[in-house]
Design a binder for these strands. Structure first.
Length: 351
DNA sequence: TATACGTGGTG
DNA sequence: TCACCAAGTAT
């Protein structure tokens, strides 16, 4: 058994990555990268933002649709806000989509259409934080930046048997990660760390038997793998209630609202309704004989459970009440809605 | 430092 | 069924 001090962690990791790298639409694999192919910074940036707190499986189709519709950062910068929000619908964390547009426009208007090639330049852009700045700098620009995401945190916590809980111990894990960040192939190293965390050093049932870092792994030696990384206890999620109102005109148009940019589902299209609280007051957008559907929407957000009651009535007027909009029958696409709003529509459709 | 911010898959 | 989890950021 070789001591961690004398084990070439990054070398072992890169050897493993050369043989087992996952193929992804935004990735230039290790063989092509060695042959000189450079990844497109636009595609690296777009994928990294989509992958924030989001699984690879969920991102694939969205990435394909975005890059087909907007192949360059200039094309994205020129897109209408509503089009981008509609394409992002269902992916969650909608501040990412608003910041995506801000960032694309900043790159187009303030950086001559080229992404900054350094951590400092990247982190100054909207929606790009410490992780994403390091990831783009390393993967797209060969900068020896240290990438610290949930995967790397888990791998480092286990490799060094770090018992202190996240998020407090994050700086320690960052130092461990920085100590093995190589000057050569930093982008492949970063992607290798994340692939290892996603496929071998997984949160549950890790495949230690085939792990390239098994020899030096302290948690493996001490039997603490399943306990790491430790995390501070989470708060319980309260249950909130709400009412939404689906009103359709005889011509097929729908009464809807464009939600304000700040806050939950910011910038997204949705059904008008009450606030979401312990006991909300019903708040129909106009006087009518509202009929309540017999079923409810149940949906869980990051920090609360929601139960929505659905009300319907015919829309008899041609102009929307203050603050609302009428979406024409042909412009209405359920796929433009955030999932919780699409669930309400699905209930109406299945009534 | 703590909280707000989505969604779908998984055991 | 349900808590946990996924390539985090903004405030």
């Amino acid at each position: 058994m070789r001591d961690l001090q004398h084990f070439d962690v990054s070398g072992a990791l890169l050897d493993w990555y050369d043989r087992h790298a996952r193929e992804m639409p935004w990735r230039v694999g290790p063989a092509a990268r060695a042959a000189g192919t450079r990844p497109d910074p636009y595609r690296v940036w777009l994928s990294e933002v989509m992958l924030q707190q989001t699984t690879v499986a969920a991102v694939r189709d969205y990435f394909h649709r975005f890059t087909t519709r907007w192949p360059t950062v200039a094309a994205l910068a020129a897109a209408p806000d509503e089009a981008v929000m509609g394409e992002w619908a269902g992916l969650g964390y909608y501040a990412r989509a608003r910041n995506l547009l801000k960032c694309a426009r900043a790159v187009s208007e303030e950086h001559g259409g080229q992404f900054p090639d350094s951590y400092e330049g990247l982190i100054a852009l909207p929606g790009i934080g410490p992780y994403t700045a390091a990831a783009i700098a390393a993967i797209a620009f060969d900068r020896a930046e240290t990438v610290l995401d949930g995967n790397v945190e888990r791998v480092m916590a286990r490799l060094h048997d770090v018992q202190e809980p996240l998020p407090g111990v994050k700086p320690v894990l960052k130092e461990h990660a920085a100590a093995i960040t190589p000057a050569k192939r930093p982008g492949d190293h970063a992607q290798a760390m994340m692939d290892l965390g996603a496929t071998i050093c997984t949160p549950r049932s890790p495949a230690c038997g085939i792990c390239p870092l098994r020899p030096p792994c302290l948690a493996r030696q001490r039997g603490t793998v399943a306990d790491l990384p430790r995390k501070s206890p989470k708060k319980p999620k309260p249950i909130r209630h709400g009412h939404v109102y689906l009103a359709q005109h005889s011509d097929g148009g729908w009464l809807m609202e464009r939600r304000p940019d700040k806050g939950l589902l910011g910038g997204m299209l949705g059904w008008p309704g009450s606030d979401w609280s312990e006991a909300p007051e019903p708040s129909p957008p106009f006087e009518a004989q509202w009929r309540e559907l017999p079923a409810e929407v149940r949906h869980t957000f990051t920090h609360f459970h929601l139960i929505l009651r659905i009300h319907t009535a015919p829309l008899e007027v041609d102009t929307a009440p203050e603050g609302l909009v009428i979406i024409d029958k042909h412009a209405f696409r359920p796929s433009d809605l955030p999932t919780v709003m699409r669930k309400a529509f699905d209930l109406w459709r299945g009534q």
